[in-house]
Write a protein that binds this DNA or RNA. Sequence first.
DNA 1: TGAAATGCGGATATAAATTATCTAGATTAG
DNA 2: CTAATCTAGATAATTTATATCCGCATTTCA
Lengths: 156, 156
Amino acid sequence: MRMGEGVEWGLHCCLTLAWIGDQEPISTAKLAEHFGVPPTYLNKCLQALVRAEILRSVSGARGGFCLAKRPDELTFLDVVIAVEGPDAAFRCTEIRQNEGCSRDEKRRPCAIAGAMQEAEEAWRTALKAQTLADIMQKAPAAAAERTRRWYQEVRR
Amino acid sequence: MRMGEGVEWGLHCCLTLAWIGDQEPISTAKLAEHFGVPPTYLNKCLQALVRAEILRSVSGARGGFCLAKRPDELTFLDVVIAVEGPDAAFRCTEIRQNEGCSRDEKRRPCAIAGAMQEAEEAWRTALKAQTLADIMQKAPAAAAERTRRWYQEVRR
DNA sequence: TGAAATGCGGATATAAATTATCTAGATTAG
DNA sequence: CTAATCTAGATAATTTATATCCGCATTTCA
């Protein structure tokens, strides 16, 4: 079981945009170069974040992406769902149905699937409790400054 | 992000073996037929459970698999790790390194990766809290009886 | 003792998902 | 008008998951 790389990229991009603050948009190309990831594929992830209203995009020359939410209102769960989709990792395929269980049994949810779903709920709860603002506090101040210096350099 | 089907298969097989109790081993072929899954691939999952000492296997004619642990000592986490492997779903690829961060920053763990790891820890904690014995209690008694009847039929 | 049933591990094949690129069109600054 | 940029859909490449196959070791039972 493996989460797509887009989640890491999306989170780092959000953090970068948050540190730069509410200024001009930053293009996919600049973010991709900054992180050393393929630009066209990063763009797909950023588009997903736009659809989830986590980022705002600006078309045209000097266009790019800005944060669309306040960092204290943007949770890790928001980003994970936007990039990876809303489906649970464990998908019950109801193999118990093959055992020939009774109508009464079928009405009840599968206890195994229930336990797996509970665990994923705990995961989601933990992700929901982490906001971008929390991370901004935890990260060293040097990282924020470095990001701002980088922005001044590349913003043409 | 998607968990392999082997986890569901493994959990249901353990539950079946638990209900049958400490009797003769059950072959891959019988379990696969019972659940309607491909026998050779199910066998791979069962082998993984043997390596994790969750099941015990018996070679030769009338061979098969038995539970190797008491149901109250077998957690969902044990099965998930045995089948899916021990790696976390979120793999930090340290894209921040590309930003040219300082030696001091590099020494600290990435705050984003840390938050993701915490969430997975919550997931693992929840899986660890669910034992096979818990599920045996939650499931309807009819399921246990049906499983035992099936066993009597197929145990040649 | 030999034949049949079974698990084991490695090799291989197939299917599916992820990652990456490409193209054509729309939008915007200058 | 032109260059830069986002968007959406199509396609290609890569990786992972699923499934099968084979040769071998082990065990039951006739």
